[in-house]
Design a protein around this nucleic acid. Structure first.
Lengths: 134, 134
DNA sequence: AAATATCCTACTTGTTTAATAGAATTTATA
DNA sequence: TATAAATTCTATTAAACAAGTAGGATATTT
């Protein structure tokens, strides 16, 4: 998992603590969660584009969750930042790509095994939410 | 998973088909499995250093498995080429590293969730062998 | 108007990936 | 014993990605 993605999880967990009452500023999150501030700005922006958080500009502004923590699936966030959950593109649901070197996906032994692993991981990732990492 | 690792799996599967009777040459494996030949050379060399295959130099030489296909765990190969199976260094068994931004691993929610995911994946990866991808 | 905060674009630095190139070494065999 | 065939070794490369950093534009409050 990229640092970006890990920081995103931590930022969401931080915002979840003040949900739905109040909002937090980038600088505060950065300080408390030990994340480089300017880097975190980009991450929060991505989370906003992804529809997970919203923001208020200007003095006294900040970020807040758009949805309840228990409705934000870890898998969605992972995909937003790191792309495929699957270890092979040919077993990915959302980022599927055919292997150029593989003539027959159905007969491919790697495909079979890594589909199982993807299924397992996906199940947990779409079952666990931001409220599970508080 | 890196291409290198995927190619390694395919090369091992190829070698498994002629185990223990005969050996295969890089050029043949490269052709049949659609892997760039010079790239495959490096991979087979790594597999040799890792103790999974052995080779015979010179005319009529080639590579062959050192151990039976059903004793070569996919997780071992994955680790050899791609390192940690875990998604976070702080939940990795063989490639453990402390997160610099995390004050308390035991209290960390991310640690908890991704430890579960690692456990799942590891279980399958150390249970499945080269003979499972034939 | 000033201070504060998000928003946006670009840049940088280092590492990794996926190869490719060429020569050295070893071995079988004609 | 020369030659061909194969592995082995070292180096290089181009492209992409990771993890930030920098600076200014924009919006909002006081």
């Amino acid at each position: 998992m990229s640092k970006k993605c890990k920081y995103a999880f931590k930022a969401l967990a931080h915002l979840a603590k003040s949900y739905p009452d109040t909002h937090c500023q980038t600088a505060e999150i950065a300080r408390v969660e030990n994340i480089p501030r300017k880097f975190l700005e980009l991450i929060l922006l991505d989370l906003k584009k992804g529809g997970f958080v919203n923001s208020k500009q200007g003095a006294g502004g900040g970020y807040y969750l758009v949805k309840a923590p228990e409705t934000i699936l870890l898998g969605e966030i992972y995909r937003l930042f790191d792309g495929a959950i699957a270890l092979l593109p040919c077993v990915s649901l959302k980022f599927y790509e055919k292997c150029k070197d593989c003539p027959d996906e159905v007969a491919c032994g790697l495909n079979r095994v890594f589909l199982q692993i993807r299924d397992q991981t996906l199940k947990l990732m779409l079952q666990k939410t931001v409220s599970d990492i508080l």
